[in-house]
């Protein structure tokens, strides 16, 4: 509540300050503070994501710089193992690249792909859900049957199919160039259904509420009702799904890359690193696959825990 006689039209700064002031008192923050597991998950996810984003700044070596990579240092074990070199804390791979640096760069690619894919699914799904829920009738039936059909395939199959088709369309030679884009599209397209269903059902609920009816009576256009009134009221569950889906998308990318249809070794993601390292697991070079694997597990687990917490914290029935 603002002080009496404040400026009648609050500026952007005033509003932002209000929002932060409210957040400090928000249930979500209180619930966060009282859950140690969630705090740890947030710290782990935060550190992983931040260090991945800052990879070019903090990585000890540049794994893409061929000039600084030397085969002399190939297959070095981690620094604390006999024969390790302190310059390469987590050891090196077959080409002599520093594992820590490749993992940082690889996480960066994984997170980028995951976030972009989730953003794509979110936009597709939310749009489809709003249109289906608000429009109803034939539009609703068509969109939801498409969603039903897609749900009968595992998401990874859709992504594989999509990846195959798009790679075939682009000329063979240059497919590496588009690999990042293709995999984002493939994962994004394979995951929109959940968003669409949830948004559709919330839209149906909100559509029947009196404030939407009242807005219609006052002559607000359908588009404005959808964007201003219904959309914001459906975003709570969308946020939860997006968080959980981020973990799924990262995992999906890792799976595709592990299968060899994802990102090429020149642009390694965590999944690519695991696949490459996997071939040398039994020849004793365990560090090449274990470290990217542990990073992936930590990343997915912490994001998932955050998503679970968010789901419970935003669910009025569980409060």
């Amino acid at each position: 509540m603002s002080a009496p006689d404040v400026d009648t039209t609050r500026g952007f700064l005033g509003r932002t300050r209000d929002i932060f002031a409210r957040m400090g008192r928000h249930d979500l923050w209180l619930s966060f503070r009282s859950k140690p597991v969630v705090i740890v998950a947030a710290i782990v996810a935060g550190v992983l994501i931040l260090s991945a984003l800052a990879a070019p700044l903090i990585a000890p070596h540049d794994p893409y710089d061929m000039a600084s990579v030397s085969l002399l240092y190939a297959e070095l074990p981690p620094a604390w193992v006999d024969g390790g070199d302190p310059a390469f804390p987590l050891g090196t791979d077959l080409q002599g690249r520093d594992m820590l640096s490749t993992i940082l760069y690889g996480s960066r690619t994984s997170i980028l792909v995951g976030a972009a894919a989730v953003a794509l699914s979110l936009v597709l799904g939310v749009a489809a859900g709003l249109v289906a829920g608000y429009g109803g009738g034939v539009v609703d039936s068509v969109l939801m049957r498409i969603a039903d059909i897609q749900l009968t395939f595992p998401a990874i199959l859709i992504a594989l199919l999509f990846d195959g088709v798009v790679s075939a369309i682009f000329s063979h030679g240059s497919s590496d160039q588009y690999a990042l884009l293709v995999i984002i599209l493939a994962i994004g397209v394979s995951n929109w259904v959940l968003f669409a269903r949830v948004v559709r059902s919330s839209t149906l609920v909100e559509k029947g509420k009196d404030y939407v009816k009242a807005a219609r009576v006052t002559g607000v256009s359908s588009l404005a009702i959808l964007l201003k009134h219904i959309l914001p009221n459906t975003l709570g569950p969308v946020l939860v799904i997006a968080t959980i889906n981020l973990a799924l998308a990262i995992l999906g990318e890792a799976t595709l890359s592990f299968l060899g249809v994802g990102l090429p070794p020149t642009q390694p993601s965590l999944g690519t690193l695991i696949r490459i390292g996997n071939e040398y697991l039994f020849s004793g070079a365990w560090w090449m696959t274990i470290f990217p694997g542990v990073t992936l597990i930590l990343l997915v687990l912490s994001v998932n825990l955050l998503g679970d917490w968010l789901r419970d914290a935003l669910n009025p029935k569980l409060r």
């Binding site: 509420k209 009196d210 404030y211 009242a214 009576v217 006052t218």
Partner: peptide
């Protein structure tokens, strides 16, 4: 209907966004 007719509904809990 926006200009000349106003509507008040039953449930004030759902009548406002």
């Amino acid at each position: 209907r926006g200009r000349e007719i106003g509507a008040i509904f039953q449930d004030p809990l759902t009548s406002l966004n």
